[in-house]
């Protein structure tokens, strides 16, 4: 079987080349990513580098009072009818970015992270330029506020989640979602306009995104992306959504792919039979 031997040589040559330019090259080019993931054991949903927290069993009623005293000068909480003190444009001009509405923040942000965040926003987010200052609240007040935020939060998924958790800075323009903060303010605040998320899953892949969102500075030192403390559940839901919008025809592609391959398989059989017939009397 001379032909099969030649085919084998060809397959080996193509296989070795493919292995070299795809898995091997990527493993070498993305070495620093894997090293960072390994070093910080990402994704770390305990946010263990921030240390422990006191017991977070606050009182929601007291939290509501504290919230009104310390938070409402910048933040709204629409679920309770508290509107933000400024419209988005003015807020963006004053703070660099629109402060989030806090109605549902506790549903997708880890409570331990929330504690550290309220204690020292710049440290928890690892973003030094963050507009929110440390408020000097004591542990009890923080625990109460967290309890209050948890009492108002309803679970958000998919598009709502991306709008609430990412949409103040990131656009998803293929879904007609535009960043709440105008791009010119973002550029001033962050140094650049953050990437659009429409097909970010194709560009970066889930493996990278999960680790990056969990601890941006570990994977991209110096990035303007703050750590936002998403919970495991929220991260997974976000990945599912980003995957769906970046590749909306995945199911169709797999279905059509199988049909095409099956058709070609039949063609291989038919053409082989015809070749046999024509070549019967040759040799």
């Amino acid at each position: 079987m001379k032909e099969l031997k030649i085919l084998l040589v060809l397959v080996v040559i193509v296989g070795v080349t493919y292995w070299g330019i795809e898995p091997l090259a990527h493993s070498i080019m993305h070495k620093h990513v894997e090293e960072a993931i390994h070093k910080y054991n990402l994704p770390d949903y305990e946010f263990s580098d921030l240390g422990g927290t006191p017991p977070l069993d606050g009182d929601a009623a007291k939290g509501k009072e504290a919230f009104q005293m310390f938070c409402t000068s910048c933040h709204g909480l629409k679920a309770e009818g508290i509107n933000p003190p400024m419209d988005a444009k003015t807020a963006a001009m004053s703070f660099g970015v629109v402060p989030p509405d806090l109605s549902n923040v506790a549903s997708y942000t880890d409570e331990k992270f929330l504690y550290h965040f309220i204690k020292d926003p710049a440290k928890a987010t690892e973003f030094k330029k963050i507009s929110m200052p440390p408020l000097g609240l004591n542990d009890e007040q923080i625990a109460d506020i967290i309890a209050y935020l948890k009492s108002t939060a309803k679970k958000v998924e998919g598009e709502e989640l991306v709008k609430e958790a990412c949409g103040r800075c990131h656009s998803v323009k293929y879904q007609k979602i535009y960043a709440e903060t105008p791009p010119s303010n973002l550029k001033k605040y962050l140094g650049k306009v953050p990437p659009d998320l429409s097909i970010i899953m194709k560009a970066k892949g889930e493996h990278y995104l999960v680790a990056f969102i969990n601890k941006p500075q570990a994977l991209l030192p110096g990035t303007a992306m703050p750590r936002v403390g998403l919970t495991k559940e929220a991260t997974e839901d976000l990945m599912k959504y980003l995957e769906e919008i970046s590749d909306p025809h995945k199911e169709q592609r797999q279905k059509v792919g199988i049909i095409v391959l099956a058709y070609m398989l039949v063609m291989v059989g038919l053409t082989f039979a015809w070749k046999k017939k024509i070549w019967k009397n040759i040799h």
Partner: peptide
């Protein structure tokens, strides 16, 4: 003759 084989290779 040649194309009979070619079609198989093509498939």
């Amino acid at each position: 003759v040649f194309m009979a084989k070619e079609y198989f290779v093509m498939s």
